[in-house]
Design a protein around this nucleic acid. Structure first.
Lengths: 183, 183
DNA sequence: TCTAAAGACTTCACACCTAAAGTTCAGACT
DNA sequence: AGTCTGAACTTTAGGTGTGAAGTCTTTAGA
């Protein structure tokens, strides 16, 4: 197995938090542990996804688009602008990404019949199959990641993460980037 | 405030998981909720960090390097190759990134005295100050994100995330990307 | 000591993203 | 109708990343 950017070579999480405490005493160790773990977990999982997706012949970027299209339901159709918003990209980036995916046969691009300014990106059968295969692989890996948690713990975890997400999504950050109270 | 890539326009998390269940019945809703929340939480937090760091005059990329250098302790010194490994980048990318940070006065670059193949990247006083300012801003925001969790819940959350991280970091993925049992 | 091999970093070519300008079409106002 | 404004997408220029090839130094062996 060749080394992939994103491999280890970091200090243990506990050690890392201890160093932060030493260098910046005001830090809350519990909070720091949570956010550092979130960030590292995410990076590691993305590396793992990339490896699996490569085996399927698609990229992480393409998988994101496939997921977004499936999530709107049949007929799995969305404009480049909407796709860009959902994925956190600029419309320009989406234009190029769609170019590549059309060339790969994962999606089609067609001008909208009723409004010729609009463009429709639609999943092909092959695109949907790829999504399904990718989901299967991802689900297996994800089950491994949470295998040390009991079903009760998983429920607790899901609940806490959801609450954090609600907080961050519902609040509009002010000029300092701090989050307001919810209405 | 101008719109930033990474803003909303996604379905609610619950709704998203429900769609996955409909399109791919084998999926475990609890697990899917956990991994989707992790991913979204991370993306939202990165957008927030970027906004705050912009106000400080540094980029997210530069902040990563500052963090890595602080984490090795005094004299806050590391080679480009080590930095690249810790940040999950190629050495080539780190060369360019360090170029920019040297130009900005955040770090210095010097050949190692005892082994002239090696290069030492070292934090400047200004770099350390920037790290401290960034930490302060980040800590405030992070406190907001977890404000709905009680201290007990935070401990539970930190513990569960740590266990997941241990699982993913300790296990070497096999050819299929699945994780082995720990030794 | 000379040379081969390995290691550490940089350079080069190319891929993908962002920001801003450009193009095309739809709807409103005169 | 004619023109203007705004919306949606594409194009262009420039920045940052990857992978592979290149340069320089160290180390080990003949």
């Amino acid at each position: 197995m060749t080394s992939v950017p994103g491999d280890p070579a970091e200090p243990d999480l506990d050690e890392q938090v201890a160093i932060y405490q030493r260098e910046f005493p005001e830090v809350d160790p519990q909070v720091e542990t949570i956010v550092s773990a979130l960030s590292r977990l995410n990076r590691r999982m993305n590396v793992a996804y990339s490896r699996q997706l490569t085996a399927l012949g698609i990229t992480n970027a393409e998988w994101e688009v496939l997921k977004a299209l499936v999530l709107v339901g049949r007929p799995y159709r969305l404009g480049p602008g909407d796709l860009a918003k959902r994925l956190g990209l600029t419309p320009a980036a989406m234009t190029h990404r769609v170019d590549r995916m059309v060339a790969d046969g994962l999606v089609t691009r067609a001008r909208d019949e009723t409004n010729r300014v609009r463009v429709n990106i639609e999943l092909t059968a092959e695109g949907r199959d790829k999504w399904l295969e990718a989901m299967r692989m991802a689900a297996g890996f994800e089950a491994d990641v949470v295998q040390d948690l009991s079903p009760e713990e998983r429920g607790t975890l899901a609940g806490m993460l959801t609450r954090m997400l609600v907080r961050i999504e519902a609040a509009q950050p002010d000029a300092d980037g701090r989050l307001n109270d919810l209405g």
